[in-house]
Simulated assay, not measured.
Amino acid sequence: MEHITMEESKQYIGIWVTDDGHIRHELLPNNRYDEARGYKKNAYQGDYKVTGNHIDYKDDTGFIADGEFKNRILYHAGMVLYKEM
């Protein structure tokens, strides 16, 4: 069976959340994201690009970060996020 990347499957689109629910990343189909932190909605917003299983973020202030999708988990900036179903 051939391995399909997150980029190819587009399974990254949706809401990713930390185990405690404090951080929530909504990856939108238009390559924009909206991050909520705690009770603060829209804490950070910006663009993202998925290449294979790698994601690059650039928020609207110019801050950049990245992450990796492995086994349906998003590892980003020391955080572990799970896709909300």
Rank of each mutant, 00 (worst) to 15 (best):
Y48K: 02
L27W: 13
K41F: 03
Y39G: 08
Y33V: 10
D34N: 14
E26H: 07
K40I: 08
I23K: 00
N31T: 15
N30E: 15
D34F: 07
G21S: 05
N30Q: 06
D19C: 00
E26V: 03
L27V: 06
L27G: 02
D19L: 06
I23D: 00
A36G: 13
E26G: 05
L27M: 09
H25P: 01
A43H: 12
N30H: 10
H22C: 01
H25V: 13
I23P: 02
D47V: 15
I23N: 01
A36H: 06
Y48E: 02
R32L: 10
E35R: 15
K41N: 07
Y44M: 09
G46W: 15
E26M: 04
G21Q: 02
Y44K: 05
I23T: 03
L28S: 14
A43T: 09
H22V: 04
R37S: 05
L28D: 01
K40Y: 11
Q45T: 15
L28M: 14
Q45E: 12
Y33C: 05
G21Y: 06
G46L: 11
Y39I: 05
A43F: 15
D47Q: 13
K40Q: 12
G46P: 15
N42F: 03
Y33D: 14
G21I: 04
R32F: 07
D19V: 00
K40H: 06
A43V: 01
E26S: 01
H22S: 06
N31V: 04
H22K: 08
D47G: 08
K40T: 10
A43Y: 15
D20K: 04
R37D: 10
K41I: 03
D34R: 09
R24W: 03
R37W: 14
L27I: 02
K40W: 09
H22L: 10
Q45V: 12
N31R: 14
G46M: 12
N42P: 03
Y44I: 03
A36E: 12
N42E: 15
R24N: 03
H22Q: 12
K40S: 06
R24H: 02
I23E: 01
P29L: 05
R37Q: 10
Y33H: 13
E26K: 11
G46Q: 10
G46C: 08
L28F: 09
G46I: 12
L28C: 09
G21M: 07
R37M: 10
D47W: 11
D34Q: 11
G46F: 07
G38Q: 07
Y33G: 12
I23A: 00
D19N: 05
H22P: 04
G38S: 01
N30I: 07
I23M: 02
H22I: 10
L28A: 12
G46T: 10
L27Q: 06
E26Y: 02
N31W: 04
Y48I: 09
L27D: 06
R37I: 09
D34L: 11
P29I: 01
D19I: 01
H25R: 00
H25I: 13
L27F: 15
P29C: 00
N42S: 15
R24P: 00
R32G: 04
Y33Q: 09
K41C: 01
D20H: 07
Y33F: 15
P29S: 02
Y44E: 08
H25Q: 08
A43N: 11
G38Y: 00
Q45P: 06
D19A: 11
